[in-house]
Simulated assay, not measured.
Amino acid sequence: MPHLTVNVLESDLVGRETDLIEALTDAVVAVYGDWARDIVVVHLIGLPPSRWGIGGKPAQAPSPSVTFGIKEAAFSRPDAEEIVSRLISGVTDAVVAVFGERVRSGVSVELVGTVAGRSGIGGVVVSP
């Protein structure tokens, strides 16, 4: 189940929530296919400017950052390099479509692999 957590300035996010959720979901679907649409989870975290720092100082206009949780097995597939590239590029393009080209150079996308059997839902370990 793809989980995307986006950190963005609250002032940039307000009013764009639905557009961002839709764009990120579409980016995942573009890589995996329409079957994935119903299992994409997006969490949006809006931060006040005083709570985002870069280089030891409050950031002036940080670009959104995305943490993308994905099953670790995806990195072992023969087409893993292509999938990683397409996910990073698609997620970046989705963020840019919502916030504008000014954010592109700073958008960070981190794919984080979850090992099979190391996650759970409802208090139960999810089996591979």
Rank of each mutant, 00 (worst) to 15 (best):
G100W: 05
A73I: 13
S65M: 14
A74H: 07
A80H: 15
V125G: 10
T25W: 00
D93L: 05
V42P: 11
S65G: 10
G123K: 05
V95Q: 01
N7I: 02
S63H: 01
P58D: 09
T18S: 12
A97E: 09
V14H: 06
G55R: 03
L20Y: 00
V41C: 06
F99R: 03
S11E: 15
G46L: 10
R104C: 03
P49H: 06
W52A: 10
S127G: 12
F75V: 06
D38G: 15
D19T: 05
R51Y: 14
D38E: 15
L20H: 00
T67I: 14
P2I: 05
T25H: 00
R86Y: 01
V84L: 11
S119E: 15
I45M: 07
I83M: 13
V14E: 09
V84H: 07
P2T: 04
V6Q: 02
G46K: 01
D93Q: 10
R37I: 05
P58A: 12
S105Q: 12
L20N: 00
V126H: 02
G69M: 10
A97M: 01
V6H: 00
V107I: 11
T114A: 12
S108K: 10
G100V: 07
V29M: 04
Y32K: 10
D12I: 04
A94T: 08
E82C: 04
V124P: 04
L24K: 04
T67Q: 12
P58F: 02
P64L: 04
G100R: 07
M1N: 06
D34K: 07
V28D: 03
I70P: 02
A74P: 02
V42E: 08
S65I: 14
P58M: 06
P48Y: 04
I39Y: 08
L87C: 09
R104F: 03
V107P: 02
F68T: 12
A74Y: 10
I45A: 02
W52Y: 15
E110T: 15
T114H: 13
I121P: 06
G100H: 06
I88L: 13
L44C: 08
I88F: 08
V6L: 11
A73Q: 12
L9N: 05
V95P: 04
V66F: 00
I39K: 07
G53T: 11
S11G: 12
A59I: 03
I88H: 11
E10S: 13
V8M: 03
V6T: 08
P49G: 11
V40P: 08
D79W: 00
D79A: 08
W52I: 15
V91W: 00
S89M: 09
V28C: 13
T92M: 01
K71C: 10
H43D: 13
S119Y: 02
E82W: 02
E81M: 11
P58W: 03
